[in-house]
Amino acid sequence: MTDKSKTIALVTGASDGIGKEVARQLATKGIHVLLGSRSLEKGQGVVDEFKQKGLEVELLQLDISDDSSVENAVAQVNHRHGRLDILVNNAGIFFDKCPLTELPVEDLAATFNTNVVGTFRVTRSFLPLLRKSEHARIVNVSSGLGSLQHMTDENSPYYQVVMPSYASSKAALNVLTVYLARELKDSGIKVNSVCPGMTATRYVDSPFAHPVEVGAEIPVRYALIDDDGPTGGFFDRNGPHKW
């Protein structure tokens, strides 16, 4: 079992992009990071890279869309550490490559299966281990595209970014955040959604995108909030975000 003085954090979808950088930033703060990766090979490459830099990380095979994978991951974390202090739900996908009216039903279903159902599957499954922590935190990596106010405001910079499948999944994720926070309020577990902003990853190629180091700042900040910090909110780097 890991020393109780050591904070244990799980980051899903941590083999690249924002998730990888969140894992790196948490590890630099002395946190023992469980690097959730669907691909063992890709995840091991990141673990090796981080360990060469003196960072304490541990590979955890995790496909959030697969019940067996999640159950096995929970069993491993329970056996090795007996608890979980931080869960950063970062893993997500999108298939928006055409107008909504032309979007295959299968693509919409796959998007929700990962971004909403998968995130809920992981959260619900790890909740018993989170309850064993004295200061548990759940951070759901959402998006400004999931804001209903942005979707309907023609002056919003998000208005011109048309990704209805992805956006609707993030709006649904925000709803789960609100209800989880309400239900877990008396337990001390804090649950928040965060918007990293437009971040340069393999999915985003824009001159206006900021680097992953910046995008990862907000998930890390809310993973480490104090006991008097907020719960049930939606935040970006500037503070509360529009729902």
Score class of each variant (00 low, 15 high):
A73E: 06
T2L: 15
N72Q: 14
L40G: 12
E21F: 06
A200Y: 01
D226L: 02
V74K: 04
G215W: 03
L108G: 03
K20S: 10
K20W: 05
G144K: 03
G36F: 01
F120V: 10
L129M: 10
V116L: 15
V33C: 11
S206L: 02
V77L: 08
F112I: 09
D3P: 12
T177Q: 04
R182M: 11
A110H: 08
L59A: 09
G17W: 00
A9W: 04
I86M: 06
F94T: 14
T231S: 15
P128S: 11
S5E: 14
D16F: 05
N140R: 05
K97R: 12
F94V: 07
L184Y: 12
A73P: 06
N155T: 09
V139A: 05
G188S: 10
S15T: 11
L224F: 12
P240L: 11
N238L: 11
G17D: 05
T119K: 06
Q76G: 01
P157Y: 03
Q149K: 14
H32W: 08
K4F: 09
H79W: 00
T12C: 13
H210F: 09
K170H: 09
K51E: 15
Q160L: 02
N89K: 05
A200Q: 13
G197F: 07
L180E: 15
H81D: 12
E134D: 15
N238I: 02
F235L: 03
A167F: 07
K42D: 13
Q52V: 01
K242Q: 13
L34I: 08
N115W: 07
V212P: 00
D3C: 09
G197K: 07
R24I: 09
